[in-house]
């Protein structure tokens, strides 16, 4: 046993020495990386670190942070009903718009791929534009206005489907579905671009080989040839979709108000926003942020596992 441990440490020491020697040789590399690494550490790693640290304290900016152990997490999960509403809503939005947006991104990228070149260029702009168009989604608040002059209400009333206007953005029953529609409309983003580009790069001789080997229709082609070739892009797209799905708050806050009726459109990030910016309970807000990180990273791992099975 001691023999093993000794050998293990010897190996580690040897590896470390090799690494150090290598590091000394590539001094210039570190020099090149340094500007980015420093800024990245300051504005991306350090915030996560401080977030985790503050999540164990009571901190309201004015007083110095006071250590409270797991208290924040305990009250989050056991006492804060509104947080649980937020979790439920975020979960609903993430489960529905995340995978659906992801699948739609791929589907449209794949269908667009066979269009002639110029048509394809136009189609890419059409599908991608909503996600970069700033706050154009506010136009949906006109469509779904609650009185009889809201376009959707007017249309449904004229068609005889409803006889009184529906308060689309105030009634808890309709808020989430409407937000989901808007989020889906905006979901063809960076991941979609990546898919479009990746599809164009798939080696076309593989399709020929597939044809020879008896691939019969476009669906088989998709599953056996296209998808396996697209794995790296699919993973990248998944990362982007997860970020988007769990980060929802702009759309819900702008359309349904902040706070919304019965907190029906509250998401985890809205809750974080509430505690961080309205109540200045930074410790509590940090606990929310930390939980969100954990869930996002777990989600990425899960998707990675799923993608390993594609095309087998």
């Amino acid at each position: 046993m001691t023999e093993y441990i000794r050998k293990y440490f010897e190996l580690r020491r040897h590896n470390l020495q090799v690494a150090l020697k290598k590091a000394k040789k590539s001094k210039m590399c570190y020099f090149f990386l340094a500007p980015y690494a420093i800024l990245f550490f300051m504005f991306y790693i350090l915030p996560v670190g401080t977030s985790i640290f503050f999540s164990f304290t009571y901190y309201n900016i004015l007083e110095p942070p006071r250590f409270v152990g797991l208290q924040n997490y305990i009250s989050l999960i056991l006492q804060d009903d509104i947080f649980l509403t937020g979790v439920k809503n975020t979960f609903m939005i993430a489960v529905i718009t995340g995978p659906l947006g992801y699948i739609l991104s791929f589907l449209f990228a794949w269908l667009i791929n066979e269009l002639p070149r110029y048509l394809r260029a136009i189609a890419v702009v059409v599908f991608y534009a909503p996600s970069i168009a700033g706050n154009v989604f506010m136009i949906f608040s006109i469509f779904f206005r609650g009185d009889a002059y809201g376009y959707v209400n007017a249309f449904l009333m004229n068609a005889g489907i409803i006889d009184a206007p529906i308060l689309w953005l105030v009634d808890p029953k309709y808020m989430l579905p409407i937000c989901m529609i808007v989020i889906l409309w905006m979901s063809l983003g960076t991941g979609f671009l990546s898919f479009v580009a990746g599809l164009q790069g798939v080696d076309s001789s593989q399709f020929e080989a597939g044809y020879m080997d008896g691939v019969k229709n476009r669906w088989q082609e998709l599953w056996y040839i296209t998808l396996p070739n697209m794995k790296p892009m699919l993973l990248f797209g998944a990362v982007m979709a997860i970020t988007q799905a769990f980060g929802v708050c702009d759309v819900t806050m702008a359309l349904c108000g902040y706070p919304s009726t019965d907190y029906a459109a509250r998401t985890v990030v809205t809750h974080l926003f509430d505690y961080g910016y309205s109540r200045f309970e930074m410790g509590y807000a940090s606990a929310i942020a930390t939980l969100l990180f954990l869930v996002m990273i777990l989600c990425k791992k899960a998707v990675q596992g799923l993608l390993r099975r594609v095309g087998t």
């Binding site: 990245f40 504005f43 991306y44 790693i45 350090l46 915030p47 996560v48 670190g49 401080t50 977030s51 503050f54 990362v239 982007m240 997860i242 970020t243 769990f246 980060g247 708050c249 990030v269 974080l272 926003f273 961080g276 930074m282 807000a285 940090s286 942020a289 969100l292 990180f293 996002m296 990273i297 990425k300």
Partner: peptide
Amino acid sequence: VALMFNGYVTAIPN
């Protein structure tokens, strides 16, 4: 991993 960080989440410590 940092690709997944949402602006709002890191905003407070930032």
